[in-house]
Structures are given as structure tokens and as C-alpha cells.
Amino acid sequence: MLELRLVQGSLLKKVLESIKDLVNDANFDCSSSGFSLQAMDSSHVALVALLLRSEGFEHYRCDRNMSMGMNLGNMSKMLRCAGNDDIITIKADDGSDTVTFMFESPTQDKISDFEMKLMDIDSEHLGIPEAEYQSIVTMPSAEFARICKDLSGIGDTVVISVTKEGVKFSTRGDIGTANIVCRQNTTVDKPEEATVINMSEPVSLTFALRYMNSFTKATTLSNTVTISLSSELPVVVEYKIAEMGYIRFYLAPKIEE
């Protein structure tokens, strides 16, 4: 028996909106520690890892570990029927081939339930090695989204270079080139407006902007984004989910042939 009650139901709505175009089908894993997901896009270029810790739910019952295969497009269609202020409860019986999403309006005057068919998904969790990243940049998530969107009008790839001077986002296309440098800036009124660069070694890597732009759909989940870079490793683009966990996107770099 599984019953997870999330008072801030909009968080789950936002999570689905941020991953449904990247991943078609995925197994949601439920254990006593939390509700999680790990899935690759169909081209095996990017990987998303989601964790919503059990402590973040108002009520969390998971009698035994369960893996529920869901089509994220269909799940998103159902969650879009929840109001932004609704409480969302996820329910499933052991061995059932369906999951139920229940939506309660804040005033309790409207209660809906949607039952969705589960699917068998053959997927193995990949081992993500612990890594010390050479450069870690934390910046306002809206600023990162703006940069990715702006650059994708000019080129298909972004070179992210971190030096002591700052983090540089560069692209090149048929119409010309673009370089955007964000300097470390910690003297701001609010901590979420800061750009913080922790660099042990300078690093420069190239990534497909199409994927970066897809990741920025998670911007609504967090005011800040953390970009962790090391040569020879996928970049990690992480959005913290308030007091509950995180959504992390891993993207393999492009290399010169």
C-alpha cells in the first residue's frame, strides 16, 4: 500500500512539466526514504534524477518498495487537472496495475480522483559515480534560462568555460557569435540573486543547447540553479526543490571528432 500526500501539489505539477518532454516513460521508485526517479532521454544523451524526500510529504506511507512505470505525458495530462493550490495524494495498492491521483482544493469543496494505468518499463538504474567537480557555479535560475534561450537563437551548442574571471557561455552559428560572461557577484540584496563560482580548476566544455533549454523548464522549481562541471564528465544542472529534494539533469558533453 502506498499513500503519499503532498500539500504543495504544485511542486509535482512543476516537476512533471519540467521532465515530460525529455523523458517519455519512467519508473517512479517509492521507498521509505522518498519518491524518486532516474531516467534517460530516448537518445541516451541526458539523464534526469529526481528525489522527493518522505519528510517533505504531509503523510507518507510506503509499506514496501515499489516501482511504478508511468508514461510521463499521460501523467502530466492528469496532473494538469489539479489546481495550483490543490493538495495531491498519490495512491496505489500492492500489485495493482493502476495509480490514483487525488486532488483536494484548499477549501475541501472539490475533490477529484484520476486513475492512471501503469506500464511495465524495463529500465536499470545507472551507477552515477561520486565526483569532485572542478567548477561549480550557482546562479539565478531565470538568468541561466535567459542565457540558454538567447544563445539558442544564434547557435546549436554552448561552450561553458569557467575561469577565475567568471563563467562564460559562448555560441557560434551562421549569423555570427555570442559570448556572455557572468562574474561572481555576491554583493546582492538577496542570496538567490548571487552568482557564486567555486573553482578548483578552470574547465571548458561544449553542450547541445537543445537539452540545456529543456532543463530550464525546471526554472519554476527554484530561484537558483547549480551547474557542476568537470572535464570528461557530464555536466550536472541541479534545481533544488524547496525542503524536499532536487531535480538533477546530467548531460554528456560534445567532443571534437
Binding site: S43, V45, L47, L126, A208, Y250, A252
Partner: peptide
Amino acid sequence: MQRQQSILSFFKKP
């Protein structure tokens, strides 16, 4: 020319 690497080149199946 640039080549897109796969995530499977970095993260292994168990």
C-alpha cells in the same frame, strides 16, 4: 565536427 557523447559512456549499468 563535434560528436555528441552518450551518457552511457560515463554512467554504467549495474
